[in-house]
Amino acid sequence: MNAVKYFVTDLMPYMTAAIFLLGFYWKIRKWAKSPRNLHWELFPYPQSNAEQIGELIVEVVILHSLFLHNRKIWLPSLAMHWGIYHGLIGLLLLTAGLPRSVLFGFAGAVLLTLGALGLIIVRLSFKELRSISAPQDYIQLVMLAAIGLTTLTSNIPVQYLVLKDYIRGLASFNPDTAINSAIFLPLLLLQIFILYMPFSRMSHFAAKYFTYHKVKWGEPQ
């Protein structure tokens, strides 16, 4: 057990980071190196950089397309995405050593869990969604819900100091092996998910740059 724990807490994070970065590099390079496709934009599209960034922010923050055209999955999807955003902010604050990170981590985990569970329920309850779903579509939601749930049961507020030292240890390539076992499970799940991202459509957030900037949005007129 100690060896496994050592692997997950002390070695795997570096592997995960490396594979995540390499995987994304490979994927994005493939997209970026693609020959320029024929004009295929859809009108109207935002013209200036400011307009484009504006539209991007609105889409990322409130999931505008879903709000307008697919309301039934909008709320759970919004909760899930906001959960992820909060988690990321929490992680940043944690790295910076700010106690407020606990709040963000907690809110993130709650939103992520509710959102992912909500999406599983919606996906299962509408026939038109069920019939276009493969096992993968449920597995990734279950994974996200599990990350949220295990984070909640690990009692994050209490773990704050431990986590802070752990992250700092990782960053200085001198991980603190004395990590609390309550963090073990969410940490493992999170890493599996991060490993999965570049090789699945969980990279859609990066794909969006290309689908919007290179295809859907044409040149300024």
Partner: peptide, 21 residues
């Protein structure tokens, strides 16, 4: 090459959200 990029992106990144429908 004419449509390689949008073709690949569309093959790989559908989230099965059903908004299109």
């Amino acid at each position: 090459w004419t449509f390689y990029l949008p073709y690949l992106l569309s093959l790989e990144n559908c989230m099965k959200c059903g908004t299109c429908a």
